[in-house]
Simulated scan of single mutants.
Amino acid sequence: MELLYFAIGLLFISNGAPANAQIDTDEGEPYLVYYDINRNLTLNCSMLSADTTLSYVWKKNDVSLEQVTELKGRYKLEEGGAVFTLTARANEEDYGNYTCALGADDRSWQVHGRPVVRLPDNTNVVEGQKIKLQCKVVGKPYPQVSWYYNASEEVNVSEPLVEGSRGGRVHLEASEQGVDGAALVLDAAARGDAGLYWCRAGAASDHTQLRVKDMYAALWPFLGICAEVFVLCAIILVYEKRRTKPELDDSDTDNHDQ
């Protein structure tokens, strides 16, 4: 009988728990919230309090919202100050630690920009030259950047590109944005380096198609032009010689008659 009551109790608890309830893994830890760049950002801090004289106090990185320069004129507090909403589109600098307090109760969020990465569609390099691929990352704080290589779109196996890979010719540097590892340098590009180069940051990724041209590719058109000029000059020379010879013959005949 006790086992029956225990089973009924478990069934009641499992059915009574709301499906969309938010569960904190660590009590007191801030919620991790991701927002999309150029989209809206809303934080809800609704808390019940018997004291109606209390007001919500919002801060970003321990600074009152009214004193945060990048937020001036870009946000509003609704529902009695319980809901924070950006009236302008969110940008990279809107990331940070947000806190809300009502009396002794408080709530906090770690707000991160959802990362987006960009690479050019195609990249060309001449065999033997150095190439530097810049992975542009949008979304702060910047996540760790990793690189991968595929020989072609049909090949599903990716080769991780780390410092010193590909015979020591791969080097990872900080990009122009200052993101560590977001710039991949490939020394002395070889024909076998052609393929897809992937840049990944968090769940975001993008790729560029690297084409390695023959080091003599620019020489062949020049040689072709030289050959055309040589043939043209030879044709002109032969034509002039043939045209000059009859004139000389006519001149000799005229002198003999005289």
Score class of each variant (00 low, 15 high):
L102Q: 00
K59Q: 14
G164Q: 07
C233Q: 12
Y95V: 06
C100T: 02
L223H: 09
G81C: 05
I225A: 14
D206M: 02
A189T: 05
R118E: 12
V33A: 04
E127N: 08
V145R: 01
R166E: 06
S205G: 06
E29K: 13
I236T: 11
T87Y: 03
L196F: 05
C135A: 05
L133A: 04
Q144I: 04
K213A: 15
G73P: 05
A21Q: 15
W198P: 00
C100A: 03
V111I: 13
I23A: 06
R114P: 10
D180A: 13
A19S: 15
D26Q: 14
D252T: 11
G178L: 00
V126G: 04
A174W: 04
Y148A: 10
L4N: 11
A104E: 10
V116L: 10
L11A: 15
S165L: 05
R191H: 08
T53C: 02
Q22I: 14
G178Y: 01
A234L: 15
Q110N: 15
H256P: 03
S55L: 10
E93K: 07
S14F: 11
H171V: 10
A174S: 13
E2G: 12
K76T: 15
V162D: 11
L41I: 07
L186I: 11
L3H: 11
L219R: 07
R169I: 05
L133W: 13
E173W: 11
N38Y: 09
V170L: 11
T253L: 09
P221N: 04
A190I: 10
I23R: 09
S175N: 07
D51K: 02
L10V: 06
F230I: 14
A189Y: 02
M47W: 04
S205E: 12
N38C: 04
D94L: 05
F222R: 13
A201S: 10
C100G: 01
